[in-house]
Nucleic acid binder design. Structure first.
Length: 390
RNA sequence: GGGUAGGUACCGAAGUGGCCAAACGGGGCGGACUGUAAAUCCGCUGGGCUUACGCCUUCAGUGGUUCGAAUCCACUCCUGCCCA
């Protein structure tokens, strides 16, 4: 095990805020593995790279010899974390949650070291809590404290609803920390309030208080808003290798630096930005799909886009038998069969008219064209997609 | 429970009897240029039919008034605000 000071240096990398460093150092000096808590609410069946920032940090703790406690918020997920939200989250049923939790856990273990991870479901303690206990817990937090929060304040000012159940959320998350006796809790910067409530509750229970360890929120592909499913600017960890690679290649250079820091914990290598980006994409794909897949995705990208060798690249093979002869129908079928994307005929027609469609390297711009589809030729659909005629 | 303001396309937001498939902005998409980056320029952006002029459907839901409704009326559902 490394010295407490050396550990602190490593852990500080990429962190947005630590409350506070001196306390953390003191805990590291205890010489025992620390309980490092990370709570996740399985609100969706798969996680995206944004989540992995905290997971990656947790892994770093593990590598330094500490114990990860992964809390699956099967109970809290039904409430919905209001943090940073402009609306209440939709409440989920327990079945949905448990279903999500399973795949969630599986994906988290791609990053975490299973040997040093304890996974617990917070339904274990919340389900059996009595109303009396709930009330008692509520007595420890004031409405004023809750209302100081930026997200609630904004919603109140804008006249949007803040539901009472949402107010319970930070208390529940804080109670999790008491139950698992957390030494450190990792979270995004939007978790500041929730994690601080944990500290308060621990103090009331006579426990040592946890360190608040905040990681920056990872910007989504647009480079502006945080990565989130509902904004559609995310990269899912279970996405297909080529898909993942392509998305990562589309980010700006500034964003690339952030991804290097937060996803790989490194600085951008001093090479051509494009090569740096390819390395980033390759390594991330490799992390979730294996080295081989990473290299294959890189190669695929080089063929398709760097060399623009559309004809020799790999595309989904589509059988156009039974499809109408006109190009619009063909394009619609190509999207549907090759990519499971439902395009309207209007959209398809527009693509044709705007010169996006190519068959065997010939542009087709007449929506009335009825080209012959020779087997093996490539039909280019848009910037990123094409299909091979089967 | 009472009062009041609203529910328009992916989102925000105009429109308050015909000129509305619906201004404008954002987002998205395509083309050019590139490093599938950024920046920039051009174009498209509800769905279906049609070679095309054009036609059909659509503004929370249902029913009505009118030659004609997103726009007027009635009821229903949903949301905010004020009062209790």
């Amino acid at each position: 095990m490394q010295s407490p000071e050396a550990q602190l240096e490593i852990l500080k990398r990429g962190a947005a805020q630590i409350i506070n460093e001196a306390e953390l150092l003191a805990k590291l000096r205890l010489g025992r593995p620390l309980n490092v808590k990370l709570g996740v609410d399985p609100t969706a069946p798969d996680i995206h790279l944004g989540f992995t920032v905290a997971l990656t940090k947790l892994r770093q703790f593990q590598d330094l010899g500490h114990q990860a406690i992964l809390i699956i918020g099967d109970f809290t997920a039904m409430i919905g974390d209001p943090s940073g939200r402009s609306k209440a989250r939709p409440q989920l049923t327990h079945d949905q949650v448990m279903n999500n939790a399973r795949s969630f856990q599986e994906q988290a273990y791609k990053i975490l070291d299973p040997e040093r991870t304890r996974t617990v479901f917070n339904g274990q303690w919340f389900e059996m809590m009595t109303f009396e206990e709930v009330i008692k817990l509520n007595g420890r937090v004031t409405l004023q404290q809750m209302l100081q929060r930026e997200d609630f304040k904004n919603r109140l000012e804008r006249g949007d609803a803040v539901h009472l159940h949402e107010i319970q959320y930070p208390i529940m998350q804080g109670w999790d920390s008491v139950v698992v006796k957390a030494d450190v809790e990792i979270g995004g910067t939007d978790q500041l309030f929730n994690i601080l409530v944990g500290r308060d509750l621990q103090r009331e229970e006579g426990q040592p208080q946890q360190i608040v360890f905040l990681m920056p929120l990872l910007e989504g592909l647009d480079g502006v808003q945080k990565m989130s499913k509902s904004l559609g600017n995310y990269v899912g960890v279970s996405e297909a290798p080529t898909e993942m690679f392509g998305k990562l290649m589309s980010i700006t250079d500034t964003l690339m630096a952030r991804y290097y820091l937060l996803l790989l914990g490194e600085d951008v290598p001093d090479i051509h930005p494009m090569d740096a980006k390819k390395q980033l994409a390759r390594r991330i794909v490799a992390r979730y799909h294996g080295e081989e897949a990473g290299n294959a995705a890189l190669e695929d990208f080089n063929t398709k886009f760097s060399k623009r060798d559309v004809e020799n690249a790999e595309w989904p093979v589509v059988d156009f038998a039974g499809v109408n002869q006109d190009i619009v129908s063909i394009v619609v079928a190509g999207y549907e069969k090759g990519y499971q994307i439902a395009k309207s005929r209007g959209d398809a027609r527009r693509l044709v008219e705007q010169g996006s469609i190519q068959l065997h390297e010939e542009k087709i711009t007449d929506p009335k064209a009825t080209p012959t589809l020779a087997a093996g030729t490539v039909l280019k659909l848009d910037k990123k997609r094409a299909v091979r005629v089967g």
